Simulated assay, not measured.
Amino acid sequence: MAGSPTARRRRLSIELKKLREKNSMTCAQVGAALDWSGSKVNRMETGSGRVQPSDVEALCRFYETTDELREFLKSLARQAKTRGWWQVHGSGVPEWFSIYIGLEQDASTLRQYQSEVLPGLLQTEPYVRELHTCGSYMPPADIDRAVQVRLERQAMLSGSGAPDCWFIVSEGALRRVIGDRALMRTQLEHVLEAMEKPSMTLQVLPFDAGTCPTTGPFTMLGFPDPEDPDIVYRDGITDAMYLEGEPHVREYTRAFDELRASALSPRRTIQLINNVVKEHTR
């Protein structure tokens, strides 16, 4: 069973939608039969609202599911109401990003392209703090919380359960000086250390790579349970976009494959990063 509350809520919504579609009914029809609104059923199936175990009980009895499935879905509903470790940081984690962290915690594969900055899971504390401080209107306490959350997220990269991560980073993100050269030298040395992990692959997309997909930064998350489909995440300054479904995943998979083919090999990426480190040492 998926581990984080976010993943449980997502799995529950997927299962409820499958049950309705199996019975060839609309949200409005199910809502009318249970004396609910159709919008309530829709919210339950999209994960945009809390689902009570009593609601799951009513739906399962209406759909005439097995006792085992009913108890499983009720368990998901109960566990989906628990709080993730990142939620104790309050305003340091916006709600739209809290959803992503929950999904990230349960991912078994992570494919990410970054064009402006280095991947968050590979950032050092000074680098993270500089990003949050420059041009930010967040109170200092919220900046501290945001930095702490990003650093705590990195714990998922250690241990036997670490997801298989593949990062593609533009050369501009590699060479852009965040803070000062000493900070960047330490940051890039940290990236080199991270690349020694067996679950980690990183490639740099060089300036002379030519025309590549202009999708902007994105992340594709894959999950160990085949019942949990892949999801594409794109973040902005104040919100995020989550894309599901085979057409979206297919297009972003194609874009990632094209970026990967145009990027330097991991070995040449290491050589380039070492050269940039030397430039910051002079």
Rank of each mutant, 00 (worst) to 15 (best):
G172D: 07
P139R: 02
R176L: 09
S158F: 08
S91L: 10
D230A: 15
W166P: 07
T281K: 11
G102H: 07
D164L: 11
W85D: 00
L121G: 00
D106T: 07
R185G: 13
Q123V: 09
R150M: 00
P213S: 11
L76Y: 12
A146D: 05
L16Q: 00
V204Y: 00
G245D: 14
F72C: 06
Q79I: 03
R43D: 00
D228H: 12
M200A: 11
C27H: 15
A255H: 09
Q114M: 10
G159M: 02
Q148M: 12
G92S: 06
R260T: 10
Q271I: 08
P53S: 01
Q187L: 08
M220P: 01
A209E: 02
A7F: 05
P53N: 04
G172Q: 07
T238G: 03
G120P: 14
H280F: 15
M156G: 02
Y100I: 13
M138T: 02
V93F: 04
Q112P: 04
L151T: 08
R9Y: 10
P163K: 04
M1Y: 10
R282V: 13
W85S: 02
P229I: 10
L264M: 15
F218H: 05
E244D: 15
S158Q: 14
D225Y: 04
D230W: 04
M44N: 08
I237K: 05
D180A: 08
L73A: 14
T65V: 09
C134G: 01
Y127F: 13
K81E: 15
S13M: 03
S91H: 10
L272S: 12
S91A: 12
N274Q: 14
V56H: 05
E57T: 04
T133F: 03
R8V: 06
V191C: 11
L12F: 07
L157I: 15
A146L: 07
H280M: 11
S199F: 01
M1C: 10
L192R: 07
I14N: 05
E189P: 06
V56R: 08
P94E: 04
Q187M: 11
A182D: 14
H132A: 01
M195F: 04
